[in-house]
């Protein structure tokens, strides 16, 4: 059986924890376009096809709405809202 543990990077934003599984991300950028607050940018971490992945550009602007997770065709993003 193939290992299903994927590499990932995380960013702890103020209102959510952003997890990006680089082993799944193909760098299509659909999430960036759909982000209602345009908080995502290309990351230096490379994805499964050797293309840039994405990362929130700062910790403040992400609202934790989960749109990026929803529109990711590869289930590469997980957003966990931080309850205050």
């Amino acid at each position: 059986m193939v290992s299903t543990a994927y590499k990932y990077t995380q960013k702890n934003c103020d209102r959510a924890t952003f997890t990006l599984f680089t082993g799944l991300c193909k760098g299509c950028g659909l999430c960036m376009e759909k982000c209602p607050v345009k908080c995502l940018e290309w990351s230096n971490d490379l994805g499964v096809y050797g293309t840039p992945t994405i990362i929130p550009k700062d910790v403040e602007s992400c609202t934790g709405c989960g749109m990026c997770q929803l529109v990711c065709p590869d289930c590469a993003i997980v957003i966990e809202k931080i309850k205050k």
């Binding site: 059986m1 799944l24 299509c28 590869d74 289930c75 590469a76």
Partner: peptide
Amino acid sequence: ETKPHKFCPG
């Protein structure tokens, strides 16, 4: 086990 899947980016 079959992920990432075989479809193109996007």
